[in-house]
Write a protein that binds this DNA or RNA. Structure first.
Length: 259
DNA sequence: ATGGCACCATCTTGGTGA
């Protein structure tokens, strides 16, 4: 099974590019972030026509996540547990039913800038809730993964110019510590299980010719539970997508699992 | 040191992002 994560930066602006990539890459499951749309306005027919089940958790203008799947989706839930006051649409879960079932968590983790400040406090509090959900996922001892736009640069090698990110919410020590705490519960960063070394990015800013200079960062991740990590066959970043017409500032990251 | 670009809303400008 091929599963991809893709921050599309707006479904209205990206629908044609997203459809083209789906036709090329043929993922069985696509976990989307920043749909920036309410559920009713999501062009679901475009994807249902391609054989995907469509589950969205949207909101007006900002945020919003979705799961597209060619396999049946069950037990869909929306919202990250732990704060009833939080109305930002950043989390969706579903179980994909294949020859083995897989629990999928799709996230758009808060950016957190400027740091320090209330937005950074929200990011760290959100990651505490993520840690709690991650613990519960592991208790099931079933194949599970958490994927999406983590807005975390895990290591210096995951940025072309790490010094430029030193005080940024994506790279500050507290952010990386919170990410490591979650990984250290027993998750595998799928990309780093397959590829080592610098020069692998999933985001390039629209500004200052970042793509042309390859000034990128790796912030879109797939974290596998031990049971899912045992099924990992491959993980790659479709960086070439960033060079197409009207691209998102993120590109797809995909895993192939023996499911 | 700064801003640069793109998206969204309904506004031709400001909020947000990373």
């Amino acid at each position: 099974m091929k599963l991809a994560t893709f921050n599309i930066n707006g479904i209205k602006a990206r629908a044609p590019a997203l459809a083209e990539w789906l036709d090329e890459a043929q993922p069985d499951v696509a976990v989307l972030q920043e749909i920036k749309s309410v559920d009713e306005a999501f062009p679901r027919e475009m994807f249902e026509d391609r054989g995907y089940a469509v589950e969205t958790h949207g909101q007006k203008s900002f945020n919003g996540v979705a799961i597209l799947s060619k396999l049946p989706l069950e037990d869909v839930t929306r919202g990250l547990p732990g704060d009833d006051e939080d109305d930002q649409a950043r989390w969706i879960e579903a179980t994909v039913v294949g020859k083995t079932s897989l629990r999928i968590c799709g996230m758009y983790l808060p950016n957190g800038n400027p740091a320090p400040g209330p937005k950074y406090d929200y990011k760290l509090a959100w990651m505490e809730r993520l840690h709690a959900r991650a613990q519960d996922l592991l208790k099931s001892e079933e194949p599970a993964l958490m994927t999406g736009d983590f807005n975390i640069i895990p290591q210096a090698e995951d940025a072309k110019t790490p010094d430029a990110w030193r005080d940024d919410a994506l790279f500050r020590p507290e952010s990386r510590t919170a990410f490591r705490r979650i990984v250290n519960l027993g998750f595998t960063d799928a990309f780093r299980a397959r590829t080592y070394g610098p020069g692998h990015y999933s985001f390039w800013d629209y500004q200052a010719g970042a793509w042309q200079r390859d000034n990128g960062i790796r912030i879109d991740h797939v974290l596998l539970s031990p049971e899912a990590a045992d099924l990992l066959k491959d993980c790659k970043i479709d960086a070439y997508i960033r060079g197409k017409e009207k691209p998102s500032d993120h590109v797809p990251v995909w895993v192939e699992l023996d499911i």
